[in-house]
Simulated scan of single mutants.
Amino acid sequence: MKIQLAIISDIHANIVALDEVLADIKKSGVTQIYCLGDLVDFAPWGNEVIARIQERNIPCLLGNHDQRIAFDEPIIPLPHHDAIETVNRDIAINLSKNDITAAHKKWLATLPYNIELTFKVGNHLRKILLVHASLHSNDEYIHESTPKADLSVQLRERAIDILVMGHTHHSYVQRTGEVLFINCGSVGRSKEKDRKASYTLVTLTEENIEAKIVKVDYPIEEVAAAIYHSDIPDFYGDFLRSIESN
């Protein structure tokens, strides 16, 4: 027996990347899809992304960007952003606050902070915890380099086998103790060198738990051009186009 799930995160209003990822998931034959949030900000299609998630009935978490838009929370500068990014970030988020419809804001406000899934695979129960950023906060960054021993103990006390996160826009799969830590990266605003859209494919069997990061090409130049022709700062189009060679 085999159960497969596709997990996506951090779309950031990039409907072009989202549609390519959903098409790739469909091609793989996986029918269970979960989203870890951050549907809005930084590209021109925030409402369209929300509508697509709703149309597909994809269970979705409340990301920190979604929370800010849903509840009109203040924009707090981030210490790892320089002055240029801070200014552009303020402009982009305020545009979302004005552009996202009242109905979509109301829907975002209903989303959960986490989802715990339990699957029976043969004689085993496999437990997966989905969060946007961490167990404790929608703003905490858990990088691949972040020590995870204490977190692993906390998760095993809850019999969690897998923790899946987004938020950092950097994908990884890492085992610490008995827990598999997964960051599925970002669909719409990857901070990895290739800028490709990424998602995670999780496979559960009676014998094993496996996870694979899947990278998907999409027309970045098309998205950048749409940003340049919108009120969103060019900063975000330039970022997508800043592909680095390995």
Results as ranks from 00 to 15, higher is better:
Cys60Thr: 15
Pro74Ser: 12
Ile76Leu: 13
Pro77Gln: 00
Glu55Ile: 03
Pro59Phe: 07
Ile50Ala: 08
Leu36Ser: 04
Ile33Pro: 06
Leu61Gly: 15
Leu39Gln: 07
Leu39Glu: 02
Asp72Trp: 11
Gln54Trp: 04
Val40Arg: 02
Pro59Ile: 09
Ala51Lys: 12
Leu36Thr: 04
Gly63Met: 07
Phe71Asp: 10
Phe42Arg: 04
Pro59Ala: 11
Pro77His: 04
Arg52Trp: 15
His65Thr: 02
Leu39Trp: 02
Val49Leu: 10
Gln54Phe: 09
Ile69Asn: 08
Cys60Gln: 08
Phe42Val: 05
Ile75Cys: 00
Ala51Arg: 15
Asn64Lys: 05
Leu61Cys: 11
Val49Cys: 13
His80Trp: 00
Leu62Arg: 02
Ile33Cys: 14
Pro77Phe: 06
Tyr34Ala: 00
Pro74Trp: 08
Arg68Ala: 01
Gly37Asn: 08
Asp41Gln: 06
Leu36Glu: 05
Ile75Asp: 03
Asn57Lys: 15
Phe42Pro: 06
Cys60Asn: 05
Gly63Arg: 08
Asn64Trp: 06
Ile58Phe: 08
Val40Phe: 05
Leu39Asn: 09
His65Lys: 01
Phe71Asn: 05
Gly63Glu: 02
Gly37His: 07
Phe71Cys: 06
Glu48Thr: 13
Asn64Cys: 03
Ala43Lys: 09
Asp72Val: 03
Ala70Cys: 11
Val40Asp: 01
Leu78Phe: 02
His65Met: 06
Gln67Ala: 03
Ala43Ile: 15
Ala43Trp: 14
His80Arg: 04
Arg56Lys: 15
Gln67Val: 00
His80Gly: 10
Pro59Gln: 05
Tyr34His: 04
Arg56Asp: 04
Leu62Phe: 05
Leu62Asn: 03
Phe71Glu: 11
Asp66Ala: 01
Asp38Ala: 11
Ile50Thr: 10
Gln54Met: 12
Glu48Pro: 11
Ile50Gly: 01
Ile58Tyr: 14
Ile58His: 07
Gly37Ala: 11
Asn57Ala: 14
Gly63Asn: 10
Trp45Cys: 00
Pro77Glu: 01
Pro79Ser: 06
Phe71Trp: 04
Ala70Thr: 05
Ile33Gly: 12
Ile75Gly: 12
Pro74Leu: 13
Asn57Tyr: 08
Asp38Met: 04
